[in-house]
């Protein structure tokens, strides 16, 4: 026993001695700290900063590589609706339109479905069903998008072309939404594909958020004589901003989605009110046209398009994070 403690003392003495011997400038930096901690803290800080710098660098790169197009078109780049590589006129309006409309309509389908799935999983389903169902929804989120695209081409598009679109045209002959030839490929196909792809993201995040509402809230409602539906309404009210965050994350995914949309949207930069007409999205343009971009201006215009997409995605993600964070904080602030 005594021997051991002597050993420890000797070891610590050695260590302290070493510290005292170190040159004064190191002591100045270290203060009373330990050299291992010092290196560890600085190293992790460096990596964290690296991620931040990478994002800044990407933004700056895109900006500096699109200067040609920014100078030539200015704000017309966002407002002009002609995207013509041959005459080197680049207006991104129809492409931004296609991106916004396909994402928005996709969400319009996916949000009610996704939140319903989340409500079922968190509030209604019995335990034995919840686990496998949650697993399956999360599995859907992990399927590579090219597979969704392939399914879109071989299953969804023929179905839309032969059954759904003729049916809609017959039923609503005067609706501006259902005009034109029924190719199958087009905005409607993109909207449905996006809805399917975004659904698992929205439902799995929403489920986590609903689960994070404390049970005491449910009990409080039950004890006031609330029905299951009324209890669910109170839970949803508690989770409001978190759910909004989940939707925003879904929106971020929909806006950035490339492969599956490119495969079914028809790839034509037109603004049309009809869902049957082909459209184009920013991500699809980039994927399709990068190999064809021969002139400097063309490349610059594509990179500017990427910059616009980059900024929109960043803004959406920041908003989503802020919303999710604000719900979490609320629960932490009021532990009782």
């Amino acid at each position: 026993m005594n021997e051991t403690s002597d050993l420890i003392k000797a070891y610590l003495g050695k260590k302290d001695k070493g510290k005292n011997d170190s040159p004064s400038f190191i002591k100045k930096i270290l203060g009373n700290g330990n050299i291992g901690d010092f290196i560890f803290e600085r190293l992790t800080l460096l990596f964290a900063l690296l991620v931040f710098l990478l994002v800044l660098f990407m933004g700056w790169q895109m900006y500096s590589n699109s200067l040609l197009s920014i100078k030539k078109f200015g704000f017309h780049f966002l407002a002009n609706s002609t995207w013509d590589p041959v005459s080197e006129t680049f207006g991104a309006l129809p492409i931004i339109f296609g991106t916004v409309v396909s994402s928005f309509l996709g969400l319009l389908i996916a949000v009610p479905l996704g939140i319903s799935v989340a409500v079922f999983l968190s509030e209604v389903s019995p335990n034995w069903l919840e686990k496998p169902l949650s697993f399956l929804t999360e599995l859907l989120a992990g399927i590579p998008s090219v597979i969704y695209g392939l399914w879109g081409i071989f299953v969804l598009v023929p179905w839309l072309r032969d059954i759904v679109e003729p049916f809609l045209q017959n039923e609503f002959p005067n609706s501006p939404l259902f005009q034109g030839a029924t190719y199958g490929f087009g905005m409607l196909a993109a909207v449905i594909i996006l809805a399917i792809m975004v659904l698992p993201i929205i439902s799995s995040i929403s489920r986590d958020i609903l689960k994070s509402v404390p049970d005491s809230q449910r009990e409080a409602a039950y004890a006031l004589g609330a029905t299951k539906w009324e209890v669910t309404k109170i839970v949803l009210g508690n989770a409001k901003s978190g759910l909004l965050g989940a939707i925003m994350l879904g929106l971020g995914r929909a806006i950035g989605e490339t492969m599956a949309v490119t495969m079914v949207i028809g790839n034509s930069p037109k603004i049309s009110s009809s869902l049957f007409d082909p459209g184009y999205t920013m991500a699809s343009v980039l994927a399709n046209e990068f190999t064809e971009a021969t002139s400097d201006l063309y490349i610059n215009a594509l990179i500017e398009l990427a910059l616009v997409l980059f900024i929109i995605t960043i803004i959406i993600n920041i908003l989503a994070r802020l919303l999710v964070w604000s719900t979490e904080r609320k629960w932490k602030l009021n532990p009782i």
């Binding site: 404390p214 005491s216 809230q217 009990e219 409080a220 004890a223 109170i234 009210g237 508690n238 609320k330 009021n334 009782i336």
Partner: peptide
Amino acid sequence: FQKPNPFP
């Protein structure tokens, strides 16, 4: 209940 549970 044991813990106060107002609707926040």
